[in-house]
Each structure stands twice: as C-alpha cells, then as structure tokens.
Design a protein around this nucleic acid. Structure first.
Lengths: 142, 142
DNA sequence: GTCCATGCAAACGATTTGCATGCGT
DNA sequence: ACGCATGCAAATCGTTTGCATGGAC
C-alpha cells in the first residue's frame, strides 16, 4: 500500500517489504495477535523471523502507527492507530469490534485523582453472530 | 481475616494460610502484581513457591474473588472483586486508582454488534501526586 | 557508503505442569 | 481418610537480545 509507504517516510523507519506486509495484514484483519500476523506473513515471507515481527511491532507502536489492545482471556491484539474509538469483545468467539461511543461521564472527585490524557473503554459480551448461532443450536436440539 | 475465610467457604476452595495471605496482601495493596505479591508474602512464608501464587490467582479468579487489571506499559495487577468501578492509571508512577464514574453513553449501532455484559473503563494520565512533584522540580531548578 | 532492518540462535523472563508430600475438611 | 493445596524442579511459552549479513536510503 502506497499509504503505508508514505506513513513510514514521515518517520525514521525504513519502508521494508516485511514492514509493509505487517501493516497490510494488520489493516486487513482489523485486530490481530502477534501469532496470527506471523502465520499470515509466512505465506509471503516464508523465512521471516518472529523476532522481526516483534521488533516491528515495537517500533511501529513507538511511531504511533500501531496500538495494542489488551483484553481479558486473550492474547493482546494490535490495530492500526486511528481516531479514538472503543472496543466490543465477544466472550464467545474472541472477536474484537470497533465501536463509536458517545458518552458523557461525570467522574466525581476526578480532580482529586489526576489529569486524564487518554481513555479506553472495553465492552465485553456476546456478538450477534454468536448469539444467532446459539439460537440455532438451541432450536435444533429441542 | 475472617471475612476471607467465610468467602472461601462459599466456594470449593480450601482456606489455607497461603491463600488467606494472598487475599490479605491484595486487599491491603488495592492493586498489585504477581511479583509484588510474591515479594510480600515471602516475609510470612519464606518457602512459598511462585507456582502457588499463580495457581491461587487462577482459582480465585475463577471463583470471582479476584480480578485482573490489564494495563498498558505495565504488568497485570490484581484486585479483590468488588462493586463495578473504573480505573485511573498514572503514566508516571504506575499507580492504579479506583474511580467511580457516572456515565451515560449512547452507543450508536450497538444493537448491530452484540449484547454487552461487562464494561471496563480505563483512564490514563498523571496523578496529582506526580503532578505536584514535577511542579516542585520545575520550581527548584529555575 | 552508512545505517537501519532482517534472520538466526541463544538468552531470558514469565507462566505452567507433574509429582511427591502436607494439610484442611 | 480423602482430596485438594503446596513446594520444588523441569518444561513450556512468549519475548528479547546479540550478532552477522542484507537492503533501503
């Protein structure tokens, strides 16, 4: 992708085929773990090293191109950094879905705590796809 | 603590001195990492094994007595499960502070995504203590 | 040509497992 | 007495590091 090429040129990072491939895979997947990046990238770069993935993930995070999503009961996933948004995580299939939340919060006594620079909101539950599937199973076993 | 004893009796977990000590340490600390639990508990149980800590953390999580806080740039911390609340994390000192958030959120198209059963909110920033300290440093170096 | 990136192997740290023994019930 | 809990050592897994070579600029 030309856009990633351009993105990288804004930074001190060189635009290598491996690096571009990682970005493309993350973009296409939306949210993806290190392992899954590795599995996918090996198809195009059979001799790539896991160490290369790790090093790139770190440098891309430092350059604010990638961000990490730490979730309960799963390995971390990574996404291309974009406009602030929140995440819905399906407890059944593990899928992470971006959501836009318009929220107003009143945090009592926040001034007693500190100054907020970033917010992260995670919603856990069951995604519609899994809910549909359990309906089918329930119905068919009756 | 008698209360933890009671709590454990509600479950299939036995009330052992090590388990009670872990709970006491977590309660006193508020939010604490595995390593720090280990360091503290060793004072009372010099021969305790890290494996014991891990096994207990897991079983206590399964019994809904402990919960894990996964935060950016830090090891996970654990807390006694209590009423729903949110967390403020200081990016400078790493401190985690419980906060109560009264929020109203309008999540557009959430019905298209799934059914939410749990919410987690993390606020990152600088705690007042660290802010005070940087003021002092700034002033004194002028 | 310079410097960063890659790939490999080794090192490292965190977590898990198996097993013999101990302890709570 | 039974069965889970503990402590130890080994195994395992995820991640990082050092270094020689290759590739981007």
């Amino acid at each position: 992708m030309e856009t990633f090429n351009f993105l990288l040129q804004q930074t001190s990072l060189k635009s290598t085929p491996q690096r571009l491939a990682i970005l493309k895979i993350v973009e296409e997947a939306g949210h993806i773990s290190i392992d899954d990046i590795y599995k996918k990238i090996k198809k195009g770069f059979p001799s790539i090293s896991l160490a290369t993935i790790y090093k790139n993930i770190h440098s891309l995070q430092k350059e604010n191109i990638l961000s990490e999503i730490k979730i309960q009961n799963q390995k971390s996933k990574f996404e291309i950094k974009k406009k602030p948004h929140s995440h819905f995580i399906c407890n059944r299939c593990g899928e992470v879905i971006d959501i836009d939340i318009k929220y107003r919060c009143e945090i009592e006594e926040l001034e007693k705590v500190g100054e907020v620079t970033e917010k992260e909101i995670y919603l856990y539950g069951i995604c519609n796809r899994c809910k549909e599937m359990s309906k089918i199973v329930t119905t068919s076993t009756k």
